[in-house]
């Protein structure tokens, strides 16, 4: 997994200067953390509320039919 490299030791990768500056032990204060969390969830909720595209319902319907035919 390319995404897993290096982080087991929480070591800043070369070039990630922001990580260097922030350090690995830095913690966000709770109000900033809440603000980030609220924004993230608000953005996510908007995505979650989008209607499920028909293609997924149709896909699952087809598979149901196939299964009925096979049994």
């Amino acid at each position: 997994m390319t995404g897993d490299k290096g982080n087991k030791l929480a070591r800043a990768l070369p070039g990630s200067s922001l990580d260097d500056r922030l350090g690995t032990d830095a913690k966000l204060d709770s109000s900033s953390q809440k603000r980030i969390g609220d924004q993230l969830r608000a953005m996510y909720d908007e995505l979650m509320q989008q209607p499920v595209p028909d293609r997924f319902k149709e896909l699952l319907d087809q598979l149901d039919k196939k299964k009925d035919g096979a049994q």
Binding site: D4, N7, K8, A10, L18, D19, L22, T24, A26, K27, L28, S32, Q33, R35, I36
Partner: peptide, 15 residues
Amino acid sequence: GTIKSRVNRARLRLA
């Protein structure tokens, strides 16, 4: 621990 570290870094970076 890796996940915790990544989440922490993500929050710091976003902030």
